[in-house]
């Protein structure tokens, strides 16, 4: 597989991991939008989430960390529940929300890594495929 083919394939895989397969991630991003419809808080939260999941996705794919999926998947569901409940019980967006989103972004990144780990990455374009998968995830999330 050429580097260009790998880049295109992993871009598509990253996108498909969110749409239509990543229902849980869509719910999480939708929850981030709900409390404040203004652009600035949404951008801050989306940036924190993107940085966080990129960090853990990279670390997991380079085998620096290797958390079990049976812990990560329920944690992702609990993170959605937490943000949704915060939307209900908190009348306005708190500054701590950015930190919470960053923390949950780390967990979601490990979820992406679990999916990507099952697919595997081509050895001749390991980093490129990883980056393109992440770009595909971003495209799916922001669609």
């Amino acid at each position: 597989m050429s580097r260009t083919d790998a880049a295109l394939i992993y871009l598509q895989l990253g996108y498909r991991h969110i749409l239509p397969l990543g229902f849980d991630h869509i719910l999480f991003v939708l929850s981030l939008f709900l409390l404040s419809p203004r652009l600035k808080p949404v951008l801050w939260q989306a940036t924190a989430f993107t940085i966080a999941h990129s960090v853990t996705l990279g670390l997991a794919m380079y085998h620096v960390i290797d958390p079990p999926a049976k812990i990560i998947e329920p944690l992702i569901a609990l993170s959605i529940m937490y943000v949704a409940l915060e939307n209900i019980f908190s009348p306005r967006l708190k500054a701590s929300r950015i930190g919470v989103v960053f923390l949950f972004g780390l967990v979601h990144g490990l979820g992406f890594a679990g999916a990507l780990g099952q697919l595997g990455l081509p050895q001749n374009a390991y980093l490129l495929s990883l980056v393109m998968f992440n770009v595909g995830v971003e495209m799916g999330s922001s669609r």
Binding site: L27, S31, I80
Partner: peptide
């Protein structure tokens, strides 16, 4: 909507 999302989660 948040209640619905929390229930689905």
């Amino acid at each position: 909507l948040s209640a619905l999302i929390a229930a689905i989660a």
